[in-house]
Amino acid sequence: MVNLINSKNKFKKVPGILFGLLAVVCIFSITTPYFFTLNNFINILEQASILVIASFAMTLTILLGKIDMSIGSIMSLTGVVTGLMIHNGMPVWISVFLGVVAGALLGMFNGYLISYQGFDFWIVTFSSMGIIQSLALVITNGATVPGFGNDFRFLGDGSLFGLPVIVLIASGITILLVFLTLRTTFGSNVYSVGGSEQISKYAGINTEAIVFKTYILSGILAGIAGIVLASKVNSASPIAGSGYEFDAIAATLIGGTPFEGGRGGIVGTLIGALIIAILMNGLNLYGFTPPIQFTLIGFIIVLIIIIDVLNEKYKAKKWGK
């Protein structure tokens, strides 16, 4: 019998995509003068924060072997809900709290239908994506909720200890989620449900509850992302979040969490989201217009995934010999 060596496995725990991140950083550092500066790095982190939070929401459901297509819509709705409450004289912190609760309730809606009713997760989250988007448009009459006072703007635009608050929020959430997914039984169960629902059931795990809770968590994270986004851009558009679900999927996949679920995780997604943010930043420094940026980013994502697939194939071939 082969004795599998310890060190090999520990090495494997470093996500391969970290090298991709380093590569992107190196290329931009060498080719543009402004890229490798502290200010620009803080700038990148600030730009990346919302995508990071939204991508975590996506990653948790993809880890389960499912998906949450309604993340962008939840962001839009929680943004306008919070915005409208503030404009109607509700204290800022209560508005923010209720916005997050709204996200949780929407996640609960998805999670209930998927776990306890056994509906297909694609159908449920695609439908709720449409429903929630429409809801955001209905309650605002399609109009953007305009600017806010300084206390609300602190979240998305303020700074604390010399760092943008938004970066601190994203960092805090990252630490919490890394702990939750890698050190708690809940996190372990999320991975195992993603690996196989049947095996998890046979191990006595309440798989329905895990799915339910994960969708609630996803809703909460999307809610936070939506509120912070509204604060950052100083307005709550009813379509502010639309499209975020796709960037979040891209960040998750680049980060090494495949659609099958059960492997990958938060750290990879953090790197994935940073890569996307750095690409946007670097291409911006090159002077590309946003449409061209998106096209190039699309190509680069495909390239990264192709390299990943080839790498897997190469490994499989070596294994075969």
Binding site: S192, S196, I205
Partner: peptide
Amino acid sequence: IHQEFNLLPFRDIAQNIYLGKEPR
């Protein structure tokens, strides 16, 4: 011990053995 393997391929041995009853 089930007829079909009830092991999660991308988790390690200990995580599989103590699945659902991890020491807390």
